[in-house]
C-alpha cells in the first residue's frame, strides 16, 4: 500500500498517453494535514502531468475533497510540499493568489453568486482579478457559456436556473479565468439524475480539449471514459491508483475491491 501511495509519477500504465506532456502541473510530496488532532491526509504523494485527467474516488470522509481543496489552498496543509505550476504553496498570499488564478474549481453546490446575473458571475473575476476590459470579459464569458450550451440564460440569475444549468455555469465561470488546471469537487452529487448527464458531457468535452483535470466523483462511467488514472483513497491515504480499465477490472487491494463492489453492485 505504501509503495503505491509513494509512487511519485503514478502514470505508469496510461491508456492513451498521446495527450500527455512531460510538464508537471501539480507535484505533491509527503503532504500531511490535520483537522485539530484528526489526521485527515496522511503522507500524500502525487504528481499530475499537464493534460492529465485524474478521477479520485473513495468513501466519504476519506479526505479526497480535502486533498483537492489543498491544491488551491482552500485548506491549509501542515507538512510536506505542494507545487502547482512551478509555484510552491506557502502562506505567502501572493503565491496563493497566483495559483488560484491558474486553478479553476467547481463545487458540489455550485456556489454561484446569487446576487449577480449569469454573465456577471462569469465576468467578475476576469475583470477584477485579471484586469480584463469589461467588453472582452463579456465576449469570453459568452464564448464559454455557448460552450456549456446555455448562452440564452446569460441575463438570468442563478436562482432561476436548474441545478444542472447552474453547475454548467459554474464550470463556465471557472473557465473564464483561463485556468490551466481544473478541480472538480463532486460536481454531480447534488444533481437530479436527469441533470447529471449534461454536466458530465460538459466535463467530457473539456477533457477532450486537453484540460488538466482532477475530479472527485462517484461517476464511474465518467472515470472509465475520460480518466487517465483513477485514485482510490481511504482514511486519508492513497490506497490504490491505476489506469481505469485495470482499476475497475482488476483491483488489487481488498479495500478497493470492497468499495467497488458496493458502488457497482446494484
Amino acid at each position: 500500500m505504501s509503495e503505491l501511495s509513494t509512487n511519485p509519477t503514478g502514470a505508469a500504465g496510461t491508456a492513451d498517453p498521446t495527450h500527455l506532456t512531460d510538464q508537471v502541473a501539480i507535484q505533491i510530496t509527503n503532504m500531511n494535514k490535520w483537522y485539530g488532532a484528526f489526521h485527515v491526509l496522511r503522507d500524500i504523494n502525487l504528481t499530475v502531468r499537464e493534460g492529465e485527467r485524474i478521477v479520485i474516488a473513495g468513501p466519504s470522509g476519506s479526505g479526497k475533497s480535502t486533498l483537492i481543496r489543498c491544491i488551491n489552498r482552500l485548506e491549509e496543509h501542515q507538512s510536506g510540499q505542494i507545487v502547482v505550476d512551478g509555484i510552491e504553496l506557502t502562506s505567502d498570499l501572493k503565491n496563493i493568489d497566483k495559483i488560484r488564478r491558474e486553478v479553476g474549481m467547481v463545487f458540489q453546490h455550485f456556489n454561484l453568486f446569487p446576487h449577480l446575473t449569469i454573465l456577471e458571475n462569469c465576468t467578475l473575476a476576469p475583470i477584477w482579478v485579471r484586469k480584463v476590459p469589461r467588453r472582452e470579459a463579456e465576449e469570453t464569458a459568452m464564448h464559454f457559456l455557448e460552450k456549456v450550451k446555455i448562452p440564452e440564460q446569460a441575463n438570468k440569475y442563478p436562482g432561476q436556473l436548474s441545478g444542472g444549468q447552474q453547475q454548467r455555469v459554474a464550470i463556465a465561470r471557472s473557465l473564464c479565468m483561463k485556468p490551466r488546471i481544473m478541480l472538480f469537487d463532486e460536481p454531480t452529487s447534488a444533481l437530479d439524475p436527469e441533470m447529471i448527464k449534461e454536466v458530465l458531457d460538459t466535463m467530457i468535452e473539456l477533457a477532450h480539449d486537453g484540460m488538466t483535470m482532477l475530479c472527485v466523483t462517484h461517476e464511474m462511467g465518467f472515470a472509465r471514459q475520460v480518466a487517465d488514472r483513477v485514485i482510490f483513497m481511504d482514511q486519508g491515504q492513497i490506497v490504490e491508483q491505476n489506469e481505469p480499465e485495470e482499476f475497475f477490472n482488476n483491483p488489487q487491494s481488498e479495500r478497493t475491491k470492497l468499495f467497488l463492489s458496493q458502488i457497482l453492485g446494484h
Partner: peptide, 10 residues
C-alpha cells in the same frame, strides 16, 4: 460563497 470567491482569486 467565501470559497468560490477565494477559488476565483479575489
Amino acid at each position: 460563497q467565501y470559497e468560490a470567491a477565494d477559488a476565483l482569486g479575489l
